[in-house]
Nucleic acid binder design. Sequence first.
DNA 1: AACCGCACTTTCACCTGGTGGAAGTCGAGT
DNA 2: ACTCGACTTCCACCAGGTGAAAGTGCGGTT
Lengths: 257, 257
Amino acid sequence: MPRRKDDRSPSRRSLDILDAFSEAQPVLTLSQIARISDLPLPTAHRLVAELLAWGALERDDSGALQIGLHLWEIAALAPRALGLREIAMPFIEDLYEATHQNVSLGARDGSEVLYLERVSGREAVGILAKVGSRWPLHATGVGLVLLAYAPIEIQERILAAPLQRFTPKTIGDPGELRATLAEIRRTGVAISDRQITLDAISVAAPIHDRTGRVIAAISLVLPSAETSQGQYVPLVRTSARGISRALGWGFPSSNRS
Amino acid sequence: MPRRKDDRSPSRRSLDILDAFSEAQPVLTLSQIARISDLPLPTAHRLVAELLAWGALERDDSGALQIGLHLWEIAALAPRALGLREIAMPFIEDLYEATHQNVSLGARDGSEVLYLERVSGREAVGILAKVGSRWPLHATGVGLVLLAYAPIEIQERILAAPLQRFTPKTIGDPGELRATLAEIRRTGVAISDRQITLDAISVAAPIHDRTGRVIAAISLVLPSAETSQGQYVPLVRTSARGISRALGWGFPSSNRS
DNA sequence: AACCGCACTTTCACCTGGTGGAAGTCGAGT
DNA sequence: ACTCGACTTCCACCAGGTGAAAGTGCGGTT
């Protein structure tokens, strides 16, 4: 009988400890970590001590564990996250100031959207997509844009799997999704109508890097009561173009859709 | 002769690999990582493979390594970083909209400020404190506030060490710093006058959590040419109070300065 | 005040899985 | 064709990670 029941390496186990933290449970005790990561308590204890020493974890006033500032500091170096944000922020500000609606920035990670930034005033619609949260690609404005320009393998994988529905308006039919994606590629704008909650619609546009590839998308989330949605389309599109240009897009080089 | 020259554990070595990345070098090759982290190439190779598999690192188009989105996603759970930001953001927005100057949010980590958020328009002064960057506590507006309310050990440690100077106006004398800190505690506002660059001054105020402790500070960075700096003080103070209140401060409970 | 339960910490003999020197592959520059 | 640097694979060795078991400390209950 093997002494060790799983074959994870120590470094992988440390990472799995970090994965134990979630939006629902951002603060954990040692025992909880051991349980969630499926590690013996003494092992978790030792690894947590190393993570604390390095600054990946911190203790709060009550002694419970949470993600530490040093990890956040390192993560802030991710070019696809804060690097992009740094460039996009002034445009996001402008868009917010012009509309006072929620503005969000997201990138595709695998077959999901990861929200990188969100600016929301007090008076805008309540919105579920927080910074750092993930959503299925087919259900949000940002997600639809990213899916429309994603590699075909990703598109087919998502079209083949069942499409999770959040409201009666969420796209649930692969054929309809395929048509929607084609329309997005044609117009360069996605409109997600009450797909997440019935009180919000979202208008999104793609952001290109210097090679022309779509690396992110921004969106404006509006109350579905808003009648003149059309006026927002040029605003979003212009902001997305501005960010793309700031990233070096538009200079003659390789430029595919 | 020992086979292993250092006694770092594998999990610590993985973390040290992450530490190899910096603002100056956010993209590295495997060999660079091995060199910076002082690891044999095969060892670095194996550990990097694990970090890639988990999503702590990613490869860019050229195959070079950078911090990955999954690490960023986990780091976004840090209560002291994005948790705080989430609450502070609407107030920061208001402050930006009212002034169109740089607004920043920072927290103390050890004996430095770590900038958690920054909103800057196109027309505001150029500013060096980027999100994720660190600065000495005595040299910036946010830092002075955090230092003024820091535990005495921290204050004394900094007063005892030489104070790094960035401009002729940077506080270099411990006595002057001590007086400045007392003044900040008295007024609840810090004004950092041309301490980092000669073209900018900064007005900062403390943010309290529900226990009354100062956990962060916000600041407005103004062009030093701006004559009517006084008008900004109430704005910054009001925003800081608003954030503190949103954090639960002000309800009758333990409440020390 | 004694008892219980739970969360955390420390210990230590076992033996496996990480280690890193060496050799092999690949690609770009000369 | 040759050189150099960056990356990848291999494998015998043994240091170091492992985790059951025992110990500590705290808060609540009897």
